[in-house]
Design a protein around this nucleic acid. Structure first.
Lengths: 227, 227
DNA sequence: TAATTTCATTTGTAGGACAAATGTAATAAT
DNA sequence: ATTATTACATTTGTCCTACAAATGAAATTA
């Protein structure tokens, strides 16, 4: 098999060189960077090429630039790069399936943090959310988002929370697709939001994990049957 | 509080416009795009601006361009954007902590997929990995990677697998930091890799989840104590 | 010493130029 | 008439020049 030889453009190469440069020299947020012309001279490329590379890094939030002042390192956000790409039309089916599963994995993994960080106020808020549901056995999409969203919040992990919220549209997209295919899918949930809340009040993280699994079981069935 | 009003550059705006344009018109991988000059004309900006925006999308893998032929939509990779930003020096402590926890969450969430998709061959490979360990109670970093890496592989979810592997260096970075701070941290693992393997052979996914939690407990302790 | 003005610097944007590659159209050869 | 060769038009990648706007610093004035 012939290797897909990589013919990187100058811009690609400069982008890589800059990222390496920042890493090697342990650049930290706030550190100021050399100006564009200097970079172009040093690298022996045009300012255009340097600017295209910098533009990429700027998009990712790695650098910031106050016009006519200079460029400084900045704190990138882990997820912006991902966010921009989350478009169900261009993401492949394989990717979509993977994301669907990824979300199930995440939901199952948070029990410990929930129990370690839950407060009385959190429980009360959950109670309010659950009380608003008209039907215990079938939550609307909004109610699902409210309940599970609150759980993400309770983990106290902002990255996780944003991550989950980003994934949600994709999750719904995939699930709706599956749902359409089948004539009749069994979405009866043996464990309801109220049940989960009850376990959170009086149970253990162990019990909560099992309850959450039962709550998500229809989705798991959907996903695991698919391969 | 005054809002940090957003003064977007032309490039930023064109980037957003293009992404919206692709989404609104349901562009799919393979679809060919108008050329740079046409875009510039339509948007009434210079080719430079268009090129900077396109360069960003190209980096994310949303578009591809075969020189002198034209540009086409392409299948972006969910994680490339994230990968480029994963630099412990510029990621803030808060981000690093969050990633550390995220990895714990992921490890706890995979049990169901493991049990649904494990094969005899997988078990054998795990057995081989565990057998190579010199000390059951304290795995080296390489042994940890081999064992857990095999688990990620067994989930059959490539995105998840890559995600975990991306997160690993950060995980180690954070844990090493914590470790240095404490005079003596108790890293005795009551549940070893061999124990996990045993549960995978003869146990249930329920039991596996609990075993995994005990296996990861020292890390959880590290993380939960920190807030 | 304080207030104002001027200046130099640096990014953002525009626009022109040209090489290289590639598919296509036009031409030549059998 | 069909095939092979050649020329051409198109489009991206790269370089270059130019200039406005903003900003901090320097210089000037009050």
């Amino acid at each position: 098999m012939l290797e897909p030889l990589e013919s990187l453009s100058m811009t690609d190469r400069v982008e890589n060189i800059l990222r390496e440069y920042f890493e090697q020299n342990a650049f930290k947020p706030g550190d100021s960077l050399p100006n564009e012309m200097e970079m172009a001279k040093k690298l022996n490329v045009s300012r255009n090429v340097v600017r295209e590379a910098l533009s990429r890094l700027r998009m990712l939030g790695m650098i910031e630039t106050r016009p006519r002042k200079g460029m400084i390192m900045s704190q990138p956000d882990l997820l912006t790069g991902m966010e921009k790409v989350l478009n169900p039309f261009i993401l492949g089916t394989e990717n979509l399936k993977n994301i669907f599963e990824l979300r199930l994995i995440l939901e199952m993994g948070i029990a410990e943090f929930l129990f370690a960080r839950k407060t009385e106020k959190d429980i009360e808020e959950l109670e309010a959310i659950v009380s608003l549901q008209s039907n215990d056995f079938e939550a609307t999409k909004e109610e699902e988002i409210a309940f599970h969203g609150k759980l993400y919040e309770m983990t106290g992990n902002d990255t996780f929370k944003r991550f989950q919220i980003l994934l949600m549209p994709v999750f719904n997209h995939v699930f709706t697709d599956y749902y359409k295919e089948k004539v009749h899918v069994e979405i009866s949930k043996p464990v309801t939001h109220r049940d989960l809340l009850e376990v959170m009040r009086n149970g253990t993280s162990f019990e909560f994990r099992e309850a959450m699994f039962k709550h998500l079981e229809p989705y798991y069935a959907t996903s695991l049957k698919k391969r």
